[in-house]
Every structure is written in C-alpha cells, then in structure tokens.
Amino acid sequence: MLDNWLFIGIFVLVAGVFPAMPIIMFHLFGPKRSTPQKLETYECGMETVGQTWVQFKVQYYIYALVFLVFDVELIFLYPWAVAFDTLPLLGVVAGVLFIFLLADGLWYAWQKGALEWS
C-alpha cells in the first residue's frame, strides 16, 4: 500500500516541478524593464489609499463555518458508506439520523437568515 503513496509522493514533486520550471525560466530569461511605477499596487492608476486591510463582512466567516461543520460531518459518512454492505438496519438508521442532524444545522442557519447575502 505504501507503494501507491510513493507514487503519489513522486507525483507531488513532479507536479510541483512542472509549473515551477517555466516560471523560473521566465524569471531568468523574460524581459525585465521594471520601474517603480510598474511595481506599484494596481488600482486602475489611482494612488493607493490607506492600508490593504479592509473591513470584511461577517458573511464570509459564516459560509466558511457552515462549510467546516459539513466537511467534518461528511468525513464520518465516507467510512460508513464504504462499510454499507455489512451494516445492520440500526447502522443504516444511525447514518441517516446523522445526516438528519446535519440538515438541522443548515435549517437553523437558514432560519437565522445567516445564509442571505446582503
């Protein structure tokens, strides 16, 4: 089994080298005529005002939050699905109940209005 993962490991290295190679070559041989103006932050030619930091909506966090919870719950369901053939009825019902509880969280977020993009 580790053989398969050796393959994946080599793939990670090669997949990193593949896009890195043209970038490095480009960096070495590409044209470089940079001026301070060129390296400024691109804001349609305007001078940059203030910090890059801007106040973000809490909405972004809520979506990430719901995503995180769904993500972790799904992790439990994958082994359950793989073992489905050997499960008794109780096991199947346990999984369905699990998904139902997952749906409850979504329902709460929906009722709370947390899913609206405003």
Binding site: L65, L68, V72
Partner: peptide, 13 residues
C-alpha cells in the same frame, strides 16, 4: 477531528 473543528468554529466566532 470533530472536537478540533467544533473548538475552532466556536473559538473563532
């Protein structure tokens, strides 16, 4: 994993 996720979610909130 589940506990870590719950902790991070509530903590960061």
């Amino acid at each position: 994993f589940a506990v870590a996720a719950a902790e991070v979610a509530v903590g960061l909130a």
